[in-house]
Structures are given as C-alpha cells and as structure tokens.
Computed example of a mutant assay.
Amino acid sequence: MVRTRPWPDWWEWDIDLTPHLLKRMEDRDFSEVDLREMLQRAKAYRKDVVEERWVILTRHRLQRWEVIVEPDPIERLLVVITAYPISG
C-alpha cells in the first residue's frame, strides 16, 4: 500500500548515507544535493520487501525514482540505502 499522508516521525530525522548508496550515486550520476532534492519532492511511501525499510516515491530529471530508506530509531537517523530510477 502506498501512503501519501501523514509522513512518519522519522521523515524529519537527519539522513545518513551508506557506502552502498555512495557507490550507486557515482554509478547513477546523482549527487547528495540531488538526493536531498528528491527527498524534498517525495510524493508517497510504502513498505519495502525488506523488513523495517521503506520505499520513497519521487522524481529526478523528469523520471520516477525510488529511494530506499531504513529509519534508525536509536540514532534518530534516516539511513538512505540506495536510490534508482524506475523504467517504464
């Protein structure tokens, strides 16, 4: 199920970038600034197939993207796992 409102508390937490994400940023030609803009433009979210992770639906360069995040309630960080364009 895709949810458009309300956003959970973790949505306001600082973000943390994983080494995997940093590699994908290089491979997929986007920057941390681009990522932050994608998160600001996010339209909806849904549960990921991996427990405790979420898929954020957004846009970048006129294309749909998904950003996978995992809230860390102990550190109060929103850990960004990866981001990728959706084809089709």
Rank of each mutant, 00 (worst) to 15 (best):
W54R: 07
D48E: 10
D48N: 13
D16I: 00
G88P: 11
Y84C: 03
R28E: 01
E12M: 09
I68K: 01
I15N: 06
L57N: 04
R59N: 06
L21M: 07
M38Q: 03
P8E: 10
P85C: 10
P8G: 12
V55T: 13
Q40I: 00
P19S: 03
L22R: 15
V33Y: 09
F30D: 01
D48I: 04
L39M: 11
R41N: 14
D16K: 11
P73E: 05
L35P: 02
H60V: 00
L17K: 01
K23L: 12
R28G: 03
T4A: 11
V55H: 02
D14G: 10
D72V: 08
E26S: 12
D34I: 01
W10T: 04
T58M: 05
K23I: 08
Y45H: 06
K47S: 11
V49P: 04
L77Q: 10
R41E: 12
E70W: 01
P6M: 09
L21T: 02
Q63N: 11
V2W: 10
R61H: 09
D9T: 13
P85I: 10
P19N: 06
M25V: 09
G88F: 12
L62M: 10
A42L: 02
G88S: 00
Q63C: 08
W13N: 07
T18N: 05
Q63L: 13
L17S: 01
W54A: 02
K47I: 05
E70K: 13
L22C: 10
D29L: 12
T18I: 06
V79I: 11
I81H: 04
G88T: 12
S31G: 05
E32N: 13
S31V: 05
Y45E: 01
W54S: 07
V80T: 00
M1P: 07
E37S: 13
W13Y: 10
